Structure formats: C-alpha cells, structure tokens
Computed example of a mutant assay.
Amino acid sequence: MNYISPSYYFDFESDVIQKLISEFKNERFSNKEKAIGMYLKVRDNWRYDPYTISLAKESFRASVIAQKSTGNCVEKSILLIACLRALGLPARLHLGKVKNHIAVERLTEKYGSNELTPHGMLNVYLNNKWLKLSPAFNKSLCEKFKVAPLDFDGENNSFLQQFNSEGNLFMEYTADYGHFEDVPLEFMKKNIKEHYPHIFNTGEDIIEFRL
C-alpha cells in the first residue's frame, strides 16, 4: 500500500496545500511536532459542518476543501491526510459509523437518525505505529457543547469523545469500515444512499444540498 503519494483527492502538490503546510516545512520541527501542528490547524481553522453533503468527485479533493471555511468529518480528514503526506508522513483515511447523543435534534430531523455514516477520521504513521485521530470537531464547537476538544499528543490515539464534561454520553462508534489508501468514493456513495434513502433517492451520483 502507498500512503505517502499524492492522488486526485490527496493533491498535496497543489499551491493551496503547499501554502497551508509552509510553516512546517522546516527541519527544526520533528515529525511528531509536524503532525500535532497540522492536526490543530485543520481541527480549528475549518468549522465542522455535518449538514452540507456533496457526492461530487471534486468535492473530496484536498485543494478544494482547503479553500472552504467549513468541512464535515470526511472532508477535514482528507485535508489533513494531504497535508501530512505533503510533509512526508504516511497517512490514510479511516471510515466508520458513529452515534451522537448530544444536540441530536437537528440531525434526527434531517437524517431520520442520530447515526452519521460514513464518519471520517484518519491514521498517521508515527514512531513505528499507526495512530487514529479525528480533526472533525473544532475547539469552539466543543466549548459550545461542553465537550473537551480532542487533542493529539503524537503518541496516542485521539479519535473519540465518549463523554461530555458533565459525564453524559456524547458519541460512540457503532461500526468500523476500516482504512483506505485513497478516498473510496463509490463505497461512500453506496453507504450514504443505503442509510439515508429519503434524502438520496434521485438516482443521481452528484447530489448537493444544505440542510
């Protein structure tokens, strides 16, 4: 498997991605410091938005996502993967299904469920091991819902906010679809249409909407 090269989706040779990583293209940063720095940059500089979905192929290109101000979990993971690969760090997409337990009224109303799928995170290879991390929830959003933001120390997994600060269940993984070398768009389309047929029932491959 090749987890370091560019692709149509992880187009890190583009000017916008090169600009995004420019501060970390410096030998004074260790690989661990580069990974942590890029994680925090992507986590907090793109506001999490689960209510905008596009199945258009170009919507999942890192260079396209980088030019937006928001992103869902898959989009933010793709962006971070591209940045990590651009810095020479092996990274790959990891997908699953999650259930939210806080602030789910709007999700349930629009999706017919408090489960989100596919939920995106990523794996990065540091110090001879693969680590799971999720840059989805920006710090300001976490503060709003009284959940500690997910930090990443470059040594341990950082992908699950199980409880909020009051001890209430916040999020749980209900399925793990595994990791992927590149963005599995056809798998993602099939998964979305199977879980949300009332939204994606037109038979079109490219559907965009804002809830």
Rank of each mutant, 00 (worst) to 15 (best):
G88I: 14
G88L: 13
A91D: 08
A91I: 02
R92T: 03
R92N: 01
R92K: 14
L93D: 06
L93A: 01
K97E: 14
K97Q: 14
K97A: 14
K97Y: 09
V98M: 09
K99A: 11
K99C: 09
K99D: 05
H101K: 12
H101T: 08
L107Y: 10
T108S: 10
E109L: 14
E109C: 12
K110R: 12
G112A: 11
G112S: 11
S113P: 02
S113Q: 05
S113K: 03
S113W: 01
S113M: 06
E115Y: 00
L116Y: 09
L116C: 07
T117P: 03
P118Y: 06
P118C: 11
P118S: 11
P118I: 07
H119P: 06
L122P: 01
L122K: 01
N123C: 01
N123L: 06
Y125R: 00
Y125V: 06
L126E: 02
N127G: 00
K129G: 00
W130E: 05
W130M: 03
W130G: 03
W130F: 02
L131W: 02
K132H: 11
K132R: 14
L133K: 01
L133Q: 01
P135S: 07
P135D: 08
F137E: 04
K139Y: 12
C142Y: 00
C142K: 03
C142H: 02
E143I: 10
K144L: 12
F145Y: 15
F145W: 14
F145D: 03
K146R: 14
K146W: 07
K146T: 12
K146D: 15
K146Q: 15
P149F: 03
P149W: 00
P149H: 02
L150Y: 02
D151S: 15
D151F: 11
D151E: 15
F152L: 04
E155V: 06
E155F: 02
N156L: 07
N156G: 03
N156T: 15
N157I: 08
N157P: 04
L160A: 03
L160W: 09
Q161P: 06
Q161V: 10
Q161F: 07
Q162F: 10
F163W: 07
F163V: 01
S165E: 15
E166N: 13
G167C: 00
G167S: 04
G167Y: 02
N168F: 14
N168K: 15
L169M: 13
L169T: 09
F170Q: 05
M171T: 13
M171S: 08
Y173L: 07
T174K: 12
T174H: 08
D176M: 06
Y177K: 01
Y177E: 04
Y177P: 00
G178W: 11
H179T: 12
H179V: 06
H179F: 14
F180T: 00
E181W: 00
D182G: 10
V183C: 09
V183F: 15
P184G: 08
P184A: 11
P184I: 10
P184N: 08
P184S: 09
L185V: 10
L185Q: 07
F187M: 13
F187L: 14
M188E: 06
M188W: 04
K190W: 07
K190Q: 13
N191R: 10
I192T: 02
K193R: 14
